[in-house]
């Protein structure tokens, strides 16, 4: 399908109130309305969603893979382990957090 007439959209679903929309995939559509319909038809066939977001993929502002080191190396857990709250003892009654 020609990319020019049917641009790529990213699809986000929220299963129910209180949860966040999560990215589930993408699709091609002629415009916003058709993208929303296709998202419903392609990604919610098994009751997965209570809400759908679609957004043009080219509207997403993303990090540059070339800047990976600059962006993410400084927060490498190996160098800054204190950012992970793993030094606390959790009483067994608390269970999984």
């Amino acid at each position: 399908m020609p990319e020019k007439t049917t641009p790529l959209y990213e699809v986000f679903l929220r299963p129910r109130n209180g949860l966040a929309h999560r990215h589930v995939g993408s699709l091609h559509a002629a415009d916003d309305v058709m993208a929303l319909q296709s998202a419903r038809d392609v990604y919610t066939r098994r009751g997965e969603a209570g809400s759908i977001w679609v957004v043009r993929s080219d509207s997403i502002i993303a990090t540059n893979p070339a800047d990976k080191d600059v962006d993410f190396a400084p927060s490498d857990p190996e160098h800054k382990p204190y950012r992970h709250p793993t030094f606390y003892k959790i009483p067994p009654e608390v269970g999984h957090m």
Partner: peptide, 12 residues
Amino acid sequence: APTIEEELALAN
């Protein structure tokens, strides 16, 4: 169907 998206829509 003309596209995979529409194929699912028609099947639905």
